[in-house]
Each structure stands twice: as C-alpha cells, then as structure tokens.
Amino acid sequence: MKTFFYNIGYFLLEASRTIRFNSLSNLFSVIGTGLILFLLGMVLTGWSVGNQLVQALEKEAEVSAYFKDDISEEQALDLVNTIQTIDGVQKAGYIDQTAAYEENKNMLGKEADILKLFEDNPFEAYIDVRINLNDMDAVIAKMSKLEGIEYVRDNREILNQLKGIVNALKIIGVLIALAVGVTTLIIISHMIRQGIYNNKDQINTLWLLGAPNGFVGFPFILAGTLLTLLGGALAAGLLSILMTKGYDQLSGYLMFLPFPPMEELRDKVCLLIIIISAGLGFVGSLFGITSIRKSN
C-alpha cells in the first residue's frame, strides 16, 4: 500500500502517457463511448419519466362504486365507512347526485350544454374510492361483494395499458443498458489491450525488474477508467444540453402529464451516467489487462 501511495503521481503520469501515445484512436473511443452512454442516458431519462407517470397515475387510481336502487343515503354512508376499512383503500367519499352532476358538467366543459336536454339529473350518487393500484384487483373484489353495491367501475384497462408501456420501456431499458455495458466493456478492453501491446517492451522490462502485476497494470486501468469517464462526461454534457433545450418543449406539448422537474432529473441522470462510465471503464480495463497476465 505504501508503494501504491508513493507512486500515485507515477501512475497518473503513465496513464496520461498511455492515452497520449495513441491519441487519435483514443479520441474516437471516447467519442464512441460517449455516444453509447448518451443513448443510455436517453433511455434512463425515458425510464425515469415513465416511472414518474405511473407513480402519479397510481396515486390517482380511482374506482367508483354504484349503489343498488333501493338503498338509503344512511346505508350509503355506512358503506363508505365499510369501504374505508378495506386494505388498499386510501380514501373513500360519498358523491351525491348533485355533486355527480357538477363533476360531469365540469368534465364535459364546452359540451356541458348537452345536459340541458335532460329533464332530471341523469347521474347517480356513488362512492369515489382512491386506491393503491397494486391492490386494485383485491379491493374491487371486496367492494363488489358488499351488500348494497350494484357494480364497481374502474379504469383498469387504461392503467394496465400504461403499466404495460412502462414495463416494456423497462425491458427495453435493461436491454439497451446491457448492450451499452457490453459494448463499452469491449471498446475499453480493446483499447487497453492496444495500450499494452504498444508498451509491451516496457511491461516486459518491468517484470524483469521484479515489478508486481498490480504495479504494471494499474496505469492501464487508470487510463481506461479516465477515458471512459471522459466518454461519460461527453454523454452527460450532451444530455444536459438536450434536456435543458428540449425538456420544456416536450413537457409543454404534453402538459397534462406530470413530468418530473427537469433540473432534478437532469442532474440525477448525468451523475448516474458518470458513475456508470467510471464503473464500466474500471471493469473494461480489468478485462483488458488479463492479456498482461496471460503473457506473463
């Protein structure tokens, strides 16, 4: 360990020499890695936005329970209390006929004039139940069995479709993350092998002088990690520019969707990309220096 600390300056110098020695090839590797990581950053952003949407929708998951005709208001309020005790129910509230009318009038907006065609209020009283989306099936089953409940209306189809989209996005994200990981590892380990080949005489001399593998290999690990970090920084820079310029426009077009705050998301994704790049660089370099061990 003492030797390691004594030689930090040397390791950094050697790493920079390795980088400079094959600068053009390394520059292209950094750009390639940066673009791949940029792609990963885009997927992570999409993933994050998708998750935020689903979480928001999950919080807003509501079902409506309609009464049988012969039920009194008192019995209806008792049912509200019963529903409130079911596991997975966040909140339950009684919506009387007048409130149901107003709600639908608001929802129809400019089309609300159509309601004037009805002599009586066409809407029924119901119980508005806010639930946890994950408990939706169990809650609906329990509510449907309650005495006095005619039927339960849910927006399960829409929620399930949204969940499906987000799940697909997650799978695509994992696949892209895997592809990015493997590609980066290949690029970096190839780059390191190239560096080792270029310095094979020096490596051989160091061995003959008794240098341990760690001493010989560490500058290459450092070089690989630094190059991938540069790629990560490039990706983070591109993502930052793109998100700063494009995010407001996108959320403006889709203003009815609850997008996460741009700054927070941008900072998180950029930081994650840089951490991933350092990790991939380190692992890729480790793969790369296996060629040292083989030739030793």
């Binding site: 030797t3 004594y6 030689n7 020096q202 001493f215």
Partner: peptide, 27 residues
C-alpha cells in the same frame, strides 16, 4: 541486460527510478 532494456521516451533519471518504484522506497 545486454540490450539494456531501457524505457524509451523517458529520461535517464526516470529510467533509474523506474527500477526502484516498487521496492517501497520513498520518492
């Protein structure tokens, strides 16, 4: 070594120090 095995693009001092770097000697 007969063929010296010096490390190219390094100074004489760097070459001599290179042989000592992993011996636990202070810089």
């Amino acid at each position: 070594f007969q063929e010296f095995k010096l490390i190219e693009r390094r100074t004489a001092l760097e070459n001599v120090m290179m042989g000592m770097r992993f011996l636990g000697i202070s810089p």
